[in-house]
Structure formats: structure tokens, C-alpha cells
Design a protein around this nucleic acid. Structure first.
Lengths: 255, 255
DNA sequence: TTAATAGTGTCTGTAAGACAATATTGC
DNA sequence: GCAATATTGTCTTACAGACACTATTAA
């Protein structure tokens, strides 16, 4: 915010402003990191909390805003980097929603600005940050009581998560499902968005929507929405795999 | 957040937690209040700031979170009530986006959780709250440099607004335009959503989208989307106005 | 040749937009 | 009757979903 003409009076006010006059909340950025595993199932990154509160509970990664030094978007990027070692630029990271009930954290009033990240597994180097004793990917499953988070060694119900993180994850899934039909979000989960097949993209749609799609209709929609608009170009090359007909390759060239 | 089984160790941790150990930002809820004026043009509520910073600048209403006492949603409701005297329940008030750049407020790092409200003018009793010397509705117009805010006596360019409030308003307009085609937001701007004509609703759509719509096509879409789904019922009564054919009345019965 | 996957074609129903035509009312 | 607005109908185009059919490759 560049102010052109701040009066002397106003400058004095700012100089003497006591931010401590009112009690302030803490603010965190917390990130729902989605990826696809080798089964093409939708996965989420959870960390095991090292300290209180919710010590030894699984949680989504995140951390406190560094006041005056960074925007809340930067907090999300920084925390994501610390947890995944990701090249922070060129990453799908979008603000999701802000959660602000006074008792959502037992320490003090903590406002959580939640973000959603969509990252191909090949780009993730998962490592537990300072505040975590472990960090893992979990498949998202559903039973009558809600979501389950499952991998080879661990199975969690959503109520076992720290804080209100189950609600944040629910909100993220709802949002990404709502967006996928009219925004090119899904490309961000491709192993290599500069060289992919329609069927790789289709599997991403199916994982996010938790359904199966008709290949013919998916192709029509893909051509109409992305190729005809120039967002995706046909590479006029094919990729051959053993035992199958070779598949045409496309490249996402962005907006 | 009800925790069932918090360990003694964790309880001790919470008791001894010093929130002051890290610097915290301030958090505000700021509200973009939309209404339609008597010309059926889209209006926004702005207040004239009484104190520094941006003293004597127009701004959207809002205020600081009362830490530990209220959720950020409640902050928005409370501030909206103070500025409009509104019956706070039964109001369209939705979280929009959170703005968190460190220098967006010259006092200190202030995180603004922005909300959008859609309220019929008949329900608004606009009054300047504690922190405002004036409160007015402004038509939203556009010129080559962006938005203008205009009423009978005042004309503002968007860059004259306090803080980054022009960016917040832009975000709100984009969001509401994007939502109106698939969410029943527009009903919240009707004078009386329990008794309205198709044409009253059409004018709201036109104001938000800033276009004119075909009556025949609007009717078809209205019937399909709302009457057939039961969200709106045909009252089987008409309202007569002088010099015109009487118009069928409908009632929004909600989800 | 056959299994497996890639890709095309066709049909149906629904919806959006353009626009013509008809209906009702007060004056 | 006429002006003004309300309401219905028709035509075109686009798209989504269901599903039958053809094409290519490796084993």
C-alpha cells in the first residue's frame, strides 16, 4: 500500500499507535495438500504434531504468520516449502477459507487461513518440518461416519485429526470438486503437464469426483474446453505402452 | 471444539501457554454491503472514517475481532449491525476472501477477513457507527480507470478509498457475478422475497451482471431452476399496476 | 488372433439465446 | 384502439450422457 499524501498529523498517529492496546489473535496459514498416489487415488498430506496441543495427533501442515514480514499467502508458501521441499513458484496454492471460532485452538484464539495445494506426487519431497515428528500421504476414503485417512500402515478417522482440520479438509474437497468442472485445476496434478494423455487427465477427474467417467464424452469435453480454446495443444506425437494402442500426447500451455 | 480426553501434561501446557511469545497481527472483519437503489442500480455501503488512519476517507464498514469472545463470522455480523441496525439473523452474509499483506494498514499488520452482504434497501437503516462520521450508499459505475462510487452529492474514484478496499470490492463484485448464475443469491436483494414478480428478480440479475436480459429466456430459466425445484412457489395471484397487464407473483421458500 | 486400450460416431434430452407472436390492462 | 407490459411459442445451436462401433498395438 503506497500512500501518496499522508498528513503530518496522520504520521504522528501511526508513530504513536499502540497495537497492544487491544488483544490480538494468532493467525496461521494451514494447507490442504492434495496429490494422486500410484493407484491414482486422491491423497492428502498429514503431519504428526510434535508438540502440544494435539501432540501426536495428525494434522494438516501449517504455521504462524510472521507479523510484518510476510503476507498470509507467503506464510502458506513458506510452510508448504518447509514441509515438502517444493519449488514454491509454479505451484497451485489457492486460499480456501478462513476459520475463526474462538475455541478452535485450546491455546488462544487462533484464526486459520486455509489454503489448498494441488501437487503431483513426483514433485513432493515429504519431510517432517520442525514441528512434526512424521509426515505422510493418506488416501481419502469414506464410511458412514465420514472421511477416513488410510495408508499402508495407518488408518485414521476424521475425528482423530487435530483441531478442526477435518472440517477444513471437507471444505477443501467440496471446493475442489465444485471447481473442477469449470476451472483447469486438474492439470496441476499431472506428473508432467507439458506431455500427458487424455487418460491421465481423466483419472485425475475421476479421483477428485470419486466416480468413473465415459471416455468418449470426456474426450469431447476436453477437446471443446481446452484444445479448442488453445489452453492445451496437441503435440501430434504418441506415447506407446506395451500391449496397448499408442496414445496421443497433449501439452498444457496455460492461460 | 470439545476435546474429550486432554492429558494432564497437555492441560499444563495450555495453562502455561504464553500467547505473547510471538508477535500477533490484528484481525478485522470488513463487509461489502450490496443493495439495489430505487433505480434498481447496484449500490454499495461506504462509511466516512472518523479516525486515523485514512481519516476522512471512505471505506467499507468493519472492525476488529474481539479475541476469545466471538468468531470472525460474529465480528462481521456485529459490525454490520452497528452500521445498519439490521436484524442480524436471516441476512445474506458470506465470507469472501482474506487479505493479509503486511503493509495494507499503516498502523500494524492487519489481516482483513472480508465478507459480502446482500440486503434489500428497505431493510437497511444506515447510521454511522462509532468509528464513522457518515455512512452512505453509492452507485457502482465504471470508467477507463476502474470503478467509481457515485451518489447525489459525492463522486469517488476507487483509488480514493481507504486501505485496499477497492481491491476487496472488486473481489466481491467478481464473486457475486460468478455465483449468481448457479446460486440463489439474487433473492436476498428482493424487497420481499415472499411476494415478488419475475421482473423484479430480473432487474436484480441485470444490475449485478451489468447487462440486459431477454424476458422470455429469463422466465424459462427461472421456471426451470427455481419453480420446478420447489425453491420458489407460484402464489397463483397477480399484482396489478396502472397501465400494465397484471403480473404473476411468486414466493421464495428457501432450501 | 486376441486382449487391451485408444478413439469415433450417433442418438437423446436439456438448456441458452434470438426473436416472433399473442394476451391483458388502463387510458 | 393504443401504449405498455406480460406471457407464450418457435427455432437454432451447444453440450452432456449413454452407448455402439472401429482402430491399433503387442503378445
Amino acid at each position: 500500500m503506497k500512500r501518496k499524501n499522508m498528513s503530518h498529523e496522520e504520521q504522528e498517529f501511526i508513530k504513536n499507535y499502540k497495537a497492544d492496546a487491544y488483544e490480538r489473535p494468532s493467525v496461521t496459514a494451514d494447507i490442504v495438500v492434495f496429490t494422486l498416489d500410484d493407484d491414482d487415488d486422491l491423497n492428502i498430506l498429514l503431519i504428526m504434531r510434535k508438540g502440544f496441543p494435539y501432540k501426536d495427533h495428525w494434522a494438516i501442515p501449517g504455521g504462524f504468520l510472521e507479523v510484518g514480514k510476510e503476507s498470509i499467502d507467503d506464510t502458506a508458501r513458506r510452510e508448504l516449502y518447509e514441509e515438502t521441499g517444493l519449488d514454491i513458484d509454479n505451484i497451485y496454492l489457492k486460499q480456501l477459507y478462513t476459520f475463526g471460532k474462538p475455541d478452535r485452538d485450546p491455546r488462544t484464539h487462533v484464526i486459520s487461513v486455509a489454503y489448498t495445494a494441488l501437487i503431483p506426487k513426483s514433485q513432493l519431497t515429504i519431510s517432517a518440518g520442525d514441528d512434526a515428528s512424521d509426515a505422510r500421504l493418506f488416501k481419502i476414503k469414506y464410511d458412514v461416519n465420514g472421511m477416513l485417512f488410510v495408508n499402508d500402515t495407518i488408518s485414521l478417522t476424521e475425528s482423530q485429526l487435530a483441531f478442526d482440520h477435518n472440517e477444513i479438509i471437507r471444505t477443501a474437497i467440496t471446493r475442489i470438486r465444485g471447481r473442477i468442472d469449470y476451472e483447469p485445476d486438474a492439470f496441476n496434478l499431472l506428473k508432467d503437464k507439458s506431455e500427458f494423455t487424455i487418460y491421465e487427465l481423466k483419472r485425475i477427474y475421476e479421483s477428485i469426483k470419486n466416480t468413473t467417467l465415459d471416455t468418449a464424452n470426456f474426450r469431447k469435453s476436453f477437446i471443446r474446453s481446452y484444445v479448442n480454446s488453445g489452453l492445451v495443444v496437441d503435440l501430434n506425437r504418441k506415447r506407446a505402452e506395451t500391449g496397448k494402442k499408442a496414445t496421443e500426447l497433449y501439452s498444457y500451455v496455460g492461460a
